[in-house]
Computed example of a mutant assay.
Amino acid sequence: MKRILIISFSAIHSDPRVMRQVRLLEGDHRLTVAGYGPRPDADIQFVALERSPARIARKAFWAAKLMLGAFDSYYWNQQQVRSAIAQLGAEKFDLVIANDVSSAPLAFRLAGEAPVMVDAHEYSPREFEDKRLWRMLFGRYINDLCARYLPRAASMTTVCRGIADEYARVYGVKPLVIHNAPVHQHLAPTPVVEGRIRLIHHGAAIRSRHLAVMIEMMGYLDQRFSLDFMLMDSDPAYLLELREAAKGDPRIRFIPPVPMPEICQHLNGYDMGVFLLPPVNFNYEHALPNKFFEFVQACLGVAIGPSPEMANLLRAYECGVVADSFAARSLAASLQQLDTEAVTAFKQASHAAAAELNYERDGERLLSEVARLA
């Protein structure tokens, strides 16, 4: 039985991509997982990492290091990195999986002679390029990590073809694409009620996603349409702004989020999943998120803007509508023309697509890479 270490600077129990790796590998391997938060309910050795303190003076100190280009000093003195080395530095592994570029240097340090697989959840060098301060502090730093560590990886994976191609173009690597799809949920489409089309959007309340565009969209739709937001409270101030923007329309509700394993089951009672994501940075332009696949697994029709990665899959499976632009009025125009028959057909198409767009398919690629490396 091989010893495998998974590292992620995230709350493991609520990180869907990391938890899918855990579920795939637990039982058949001696699995150690290092990250934040409580111990996941899994057959693993869990190593809880300490986070760096969030004091203002401390942040200024780290910012100065980044501005001066002291990248190694910045990295190796972060509390989570030091914590991992203290707890795992004497351990031996057959394979180390680094989730995101931020954990790659640590993965190589802990791996010794063992191979390292880097799973890039996003295109890290341009993740928040729409924010000037992020570009100033982290742009050069993350590019430096990518240039030094990605070519050393025995294997690399990422979430979609557009991001894989950019990593290949800039850093000369060849990432394998493993989608952010959940396991096959084996759900059936729920009936569409005549005269009603129930829309839902779920995810994090992140300001740069411009979620208010979907509130604006409702102003162009007739009374058949309702929209529920099921948002994690990641930015309380922004979530309050969204509630204020929607309070004049009784068709818009904000409902409590459900635990990650229950998302698809909860979505199943709706008709269409909506995600209108303006391409304010590279990752948003090439977004192919968990929620797209969760909409499909929940047997919903899907309504999106012209995001190429999502649009290509949607058109291939004919399971929804793609707006002509990212404007609220444009997606509303695509939705307004739908009737009960069309929405029913979309839900049936997602039901068929769910048999292919699931982690059983993508997990086979990861298992193959693990077998090859370990």
Rank of each mutant, 00 (worst) to 15 (best):
270 Y>V: 06
123 Y>V: 03
351 H>A: 14
7 I>T: 12
325 S>Y: 08
189 P>M: 03
20 R>V: 04
143 N>M: 05
280 V>C: 11
3 R>P: 05
30 R>E: 14
259 P>Q: 09
121 H>N: 05
202 H>M: 05
308 P>F: 06
225 F>T: 00
75 Y>C: 07
133 L>S: 12
22 V>Y: 00
284 Y>M: 14
222 D>L: 03
293 F>C: 08
238 Y>S: 06
186 H>I: 10
302 V>C: 05
127 E>K: 12
65 K>W: 10
335 L>N: 01
236 P>T: 13
309 E>R: 07
33 V>Y: 04
264 C>V: 11
91 E>H: 10
20 R>C: 10
348 Q>T: 13
240 L>W: 12
258 V>M: 02
195 G>A: 05
172 G>D: 02
114 A>P: 06
107 A>S: 12
143 N>S: 08
313 L>W: 02
173 V>Q: 05
176 L>C: 13
105 P>R: 05
196 R>H: 12
339 D>Y: 01
178 I>V: 15
67 M>D: 01
22 V>C: 07
114 A>D: 01
120 A>K: 00
23 R>S: 14
245 A>Q: 10
12 I>H: 00
111 A>D: 01
140 R>N: 11
47 V>H: 03
328 A>K: 00
128 F>M: 11
232 M>K: 12
176 L>M: 13
129 E>R: 10
184 H>N: 14
334 S>N: 07
52 S>A: 12
72 D>H: 09
255 I>T: 13
191 P>G: 11
155 S>H: 13
260 M>F: 08
113 E>R: 14
215 I>D: 00
359 Y>L: 09
137 L>F: 13
92 K>F: 01
164 A>F: 06
87 Q>W: 08
328 A>S: 13
370 V>R: 04
144 D>W: 15
306 P>Q: 12
98 A>G: 09
194 E>M: 04
251 R>W: 10
15 D>K: 06
